[in-house]
């Protein structure tokens, strides 16, 4: 997991449960050791600044271009999107998935909510925890919507990039993490 800031410890628990060996990535050297990357929720402004300070942005962009599987949640989704609306003017994203997202699009903390999600390919429902979450405003033609809430996409995939506007790492349910790992390893074998 990218361990600059945010909920990376909860992701580590879920990844462990899903059968992976999580490592904390704060430097380019640590990034080189990772087979796949989870970019956690947190504050995207903070993480974006720390990516630059740690000189991680260029190596990360390189790995993403090479097709490293990546799973971004909330702030991680913001960092991976092509366009960020209502962000800071100097906020730069990695453009790995063809989405426009609106930062804090669902409102402030008092507007945060929990709802049961229907996720393509998962039985029953999945607890969707939305905390000052981004809203997806536009999806590119190659982006597959895996789950949505009231017509707005909340879980999307494009190639090896998976993004969620909610927090599966807080749900106590590792199924989405397991699916991310399965597809990551499947594409390794291909």
């Amino acid at each position: 997991m990218l361990a600059l800031q945010g909920a990376f410890a909860s992701h580590a628990e879920m990844l462990g449960e899903a059968g992976a060996t999580p490592i904390e990535v704060r430097t380019a050297g640590e990034l080189a050791e990772a087979d796949a990357l989870v970019m956690p929720g947190g504050e995207s402004t903070t993480m974006s600044m720390l990516l630059d300070i740690a000189e991680l942005r260029a190596p990360l962009a390189g790995r993403l271009a090479d097709g490293m599987p990546v799973f971004g949640t909330c702030a991680g989704m913001i960092l991976l999107a092509v366009n960020v609306l209502d962000g800071r003017s100097d906020q730069r994203s990695l453009g790995a998935i063809d989405l426009d997202v609106r930062r804090n699009g669902y409102g402030r903390q008092v507007d945060s909510f929990e709802t049961d999600l229907v996720v393509d390919g998962l039985e029953g429902t999945f607890p969707g925890i939305f905390i000052r979450s981004p809203v997806v405003e536009r999806i590119g033609p190659d982006v597959e919507v895996v789950a949505e809430v009231e017509g707005r996409p909340v879980l999307c995939r494009q190639g090896n990039v998976l993004v969620a506007s909610f927090h599966p790492e807080l749900a106590g349910d590792a199924r989405i993490h397991r699916r991310f790992l399965e597809s990551a390893f499947a594409s390794d074998a291909a």
């Binding site: 361990a3 600059l4 800031q5 945010g6 909920a7 990376f8 410890a9 909860s10 929720g41 947190g42 504050e43 903070t46 909330c74 702030a75 903390q109 945060s112 909510f113 929990e114 607890p127 925890i129 939305f130 905390i131 000052r132 927090h167 807080l170 749900a171």
Partner: peptide
Amino acid sequence: MVKRGLAEMLKGGV
């Protein structure tokens, strides 16, 4: 969890 969740997002920060 929604109430607690924001603190999770603030971890590792200032």
